[in-house]
Design a protein around this nucleic acid. Structure first.
Lengths: 364, 364
DNA sequence: TTGTATGCGTTATCAA
DNA sequence: TTGATAACGCATACAA
């Protein structure tokens, strides 16, 4: 009877197993890794080794293995804020694409802290991840650290922000097209008094979407009333969008401005706007139509459910992952120097929060 | 002029740096790690080494280091479903507690797949994480793999499920107390026709909460009408709670049952219920009061905002992390054999979806 | 004040 | 058919 391993006692290694099985380390390694060479080993030797490994609860040591193989099988996934539902869907896409692979995606949550981002970038290099995906939802993270990271020559993609670089590809939604779509939607429904809640200044997306909105207005010969154009304050908390949207619309109502449509910066802002309307006794969509942006999972839970410009986040995540994987495999079809900005087309999702403008319903 | 490192070229090591600085490996190691011994090195030697490391963009190899040190500085965090907002808050608590440490929390998302859970458990052992935290929100994951994991002797805590074990501590909310609180709340508001939406059968939490509800009813001398007691169907998707809650209440209304209060299994269920009420033209809280469970971030975004039994998820996460950290440090105050079930007290959060029963408002 | 040698656990090459 | 040995990159005990 062999002694069973004591929990907490130092774990067993190839040597331990070899001793128990009465063979050498190398033989054990061959067998346990199913190398071709193991095929012409005596069947009972293999069996003996397998049983010994089992009995000793042998688990290979990843550190030793990757040191030797120069492969860690690690895929770094740095997320700016895991609490943001936006990230969550992207992660699903990423993981979907990575599933087939032998890569292990490890998620690092920056929690919107700059220092952490830089620290994690270093960590990820030290741990020799084979590729890196950055999910950059919310803005206030400074990307300078990425410049230094580039020198490590690790395949990387950033989702959600434009990072001009010839090594790192950026994947994000076409915000301008999205802005256009949102505005066109309301215009085509006959709305003329349309309020716009722009995003915070520091956010790239804010400008792009705003530009799209303006384009659509111009094309339709519509003039945006400056009094109806609002701005979300700066904030590091994505959930602030709700408060901001609420505040903006409540304010507008207090000023007695008349409007029948709202283009909100994002879905949370739209939720805040809906809430402000509700509190003022104004019904959506009967009195005011509201368009969001992103299509977060909750968009379908609101009352009324939200018409929104959807980002296909799963698809973007999957695309980014596939791209990194190809880079890792050194796929000849993908040159590193191809690195560029890929804009993903948005998709208009019409739900209950918008409807055609009618004089009857117009309470304002 | 020294040649600058070519990106993609094999990275520099201690040896490379040593060569460039004209010293030996060990000296470099001493300096770069700020060992006490480095203090009596010539100042310019240190400077030379530092510059060489900088120039070569030297980054220590984590695999080699942890092989040598027998410390990986990795903390595994396995999450059943990262898309569930419930997990997200727990993660914040965990990360908060780990921040001070030199541990790197790596998050692995099981995505509700059994195979993945087992696979990740193995991975986590192979990668020699120093501790493991499991965030088990939704039920259908089979914990058998954990039994095998226990043998690895790695400090571990599971949050959100009871896992009887003398090695692994379970941290979860006191569901029974929560059920009591919810029911008591409605009863104390004077409601007598109270509908209950129980959770899915396979979920531990369902029974516990139900028991609490019954206790509260009994204590108040209240009899639960079986016709008002519903059940959520089994499902692997936490978001299904919304659909389930909606369906349950819609059905109840169609049957013409009269009620003025709802105890929902969780917040999403409550949202679904609210939605069904809204669609039927029934106002909450005027006509029907609704209580949720969990206090997910969205609970404050609904219309009306949700009265709910809050789980202090951040706190639970922080507690669990602190516990694992103590185990890792081998804190004498914490014996491994102490492993047990820790029930965290819930907290009643009263918002807008409940109010005192009045005959005037009663539309049913 | 600095250098040499060794071993952590694996895998691969070569030899037997 | 199996075994000895070297090497991956790092940190340390020991030597000089």
């Amino acid at each position: 009877m062999k002694s069973s391993p004591i929990p907490g006692k130092s774990r067993s290694t190839l040597a331990t197993v070899a001793r128990l099985a009465g063979v050498s380390q190398s033989t054990v390694s061959l067998v346990l890794n199913d190398r071709p060479l193991a095929r012409n080993l005596a069947a009972d030797t293999r069996e003996r080794i397998r049983r010994a490994a089992q009995e000793l609860r042998y688990r290979p040591n990843a550190a030793a293995r990757s040191l030797r193989n120069a492969r860690t099988q690690l895929l770094g996934v740095i997320v700016f804020d895991i609490a943001d539902p936006y990230c969550t869907l992207i992660l699903q896409g990423v993981q979907e694409a990575v599933r087939q692979t032998d890569l292990l995606p490890i998620i690092l949550d920056v929690q919107n802290r700059n220092e952490r981002f830089d620290r994690y970038l270093e960590m990820v290099v030290e741990h020799q991840v084979e590729g890196l995906i950055i999910v950059a939802n919310w803005l206030f993270i400074d990307l300078d650290g990425l410049r230094r990271f580039e020198e490590a020559g690790i395949p990387a993609v950033i989702i959600g922000r434009e990072f001009p670089s010839k090594n790192i590809t950026s994947v994000l939604v076409d915000n301008q097209a999205g802005g256009r779509a949102a505005m066109q939607h309301l215009l085509s429904l006959g709305h003329t008094r349309i309020a716009v809640i722009r995003g915070p200044k520091h956010l790239q997306d804010s400008d792009r979407r705003w530009r799209g909105i303006q384009q659509a207005a111009k094309k339709a010969g519509h003039t945006l009333d400056p009094k109806l154009v609002l701005r979300l304050p700066e904030s590091a908390d994505p959930l602030q969008g709700f408060v901001g949207g609420h505040h903006a619309i409540a304010e507008l109502l207090r000023q007695g401005e008349a409007f029948t449509g709202i283009v909100a910066f994002d879905d949370l802002t739209a939720c805040g706007a809906l809430r402000a309307l509700y509190e003022a006794g104004i019904r959506s969509p009967r009195d005011v139509s509201v368009v969001g942006f992103d299509d977060i999972p909750q968009a379908v839970l609101t009352t009324p459910s939200l018409t929104t410009v959807a980002q296909e986040m799963k698809e973007m995540g999957a695309f980014a992952a596939t791209h990194v994987l190809a880079l890792i495999e050194d796929d000849p079809a993908i040159k590193r120097s191809d690195a560029t900005i890929r804009l993903h087309p948005p998709k208009m999702v019409v739900r209950e929060s918008t409807r055609a403008f009618t004089h009857t319903g117009d309470a304002l």
